[in-house]
Every structure is written in C-alpha cells, then in structure tokens.
Amino acid sequence: MSNRSLLVVAVAAVALSAAACQKQPEVAPVPAVNTDSINAANERARLEAERIARERAEADRIARERAEADRIARDKAEAEARARAAMAAARAAFATAIYFDLDKSELTSEARAALDAKLPLLRANPNVRIRVAGHADDRGSDEYNVALSQRRAAAAKRYLVDQGIPADRIDVAGFGEERPAMQGSGEDVWSKNRRDEFEIIVGGETLRLP
C-alpha cells in the first residue's frame, strides 16, 4: 500500500471512531485477571500468616512453659526455703542452751520454756537420740562441778521424760567447768557457762519436721 492510501485509511478510522464515541458509550474493556498469580500470592500470604501464627504460638507455648517451670521452681525453692527455715528453726530451738543459777541444778521458768520448744522435734522424730551436756562456771570446786553439771544435765532429762520423751533416748553427761562457752570472768561470762547444751547423737541427718 502506498503512503497515500495508508493516510486515507487512517483518516477514515479516526472519523469512524469519532462518530462512534459520540453516538453510544462503549463498554470499558475489562482487563483480563490473572487468577493464578493472585492465588499464588494469597497462598504465600496464608502460609506466611500461618508460619507467624505458628511461631507465635510456639513462642507463647515456650513462654508459658517457661513461666510454668519458673513458677514450679520458684514454688519449690520457696517451699524448700520454708522447709529449711522451719528445720533450722526447729534445730535452733532444739540446740538452744538452758541456763542455771549459781550452784543450782533446778530448772528456771525460762529453761522449762526452752525445753518445751524442743519437744515437737523430739516427738516428730522418735528415732532421734540426744545428749544433754551439763556445764558449770569456774568458781566452784573443779571436781564438785563435774557432779553439779551432771545434776544440771539430769534435771533437763527428767523434765523431757516427764513430757513423754522416753528416757532411753536421752544421754546425759557432766563436763564441770572444763568446756566453757565463754572465756573470762564476771557474771556475764559465768551466767553463759552455767548451762546445759543439747546435741543430736543419732538420727540428725534424717530429721522430719514436726
């Protein structure tokens, strides 16, 4: 086709199309949808969401489990600490010395209260054997003090036996003035040395709490 004829065709086409536009609205051409790519994108998004959800759930689960484990551990530690404290308190109550007046082996009211505090541990642990060790300050006769300190230990044993602790669970010994709790002289020292000390000699490793 010659250039001239092309021009004609083109003019005609323009005129035709202009006439058409003016006369009736043409329907806009609908782009063809590529569903495959949309589906693929959707799938990717879904998978991503699922992955995130899964990871979040996993993280939550781990966090929950960790929190639970922490709680359990904390509870356990607290329980153990409570038990330890209770045991320490029970042992301390048991190990608390009792004190006597000069040249006396009679129990004071404070001494009886201190002995009462030892009873729960002794009752909860019927296999435990103890030793009561009596002591004296260094003012009396050295040898007489051996016998005096023995009487002091025996006084504590008698009281515990009267409270229902079998006598064969309690050993007693008197050490006179030979093993002072405090060195020196003066009533502050002497009053700390006129004492009974308490020691678990059998069953101390497997104590049960009252």
Partner: peptide, 25 residues
C-alpha cells in the same frame, strides 16, 4: 554411765572410792 569422778585409794591400797551417778552422785 553418767558422771564418774573424784577417785581416792584407801590407805591399804586395796580399794578405790569414787563418785558416780546419772542424777545426783
């Protein structure tokens, strides 16, 4: 058991006296 202390030989050397007891001696 208990407190055993303060021995003393008799002058003939044949016996020994001493103090002993668990609750009082």
């Amino acid at each position: 058991a208990g407190a055993n202390s303060s021995p003393a030989f008799s002058p003939d050397g044949k016996t020994l006296a001493y103090s002993s007891g668990e609750d009082g001696t």
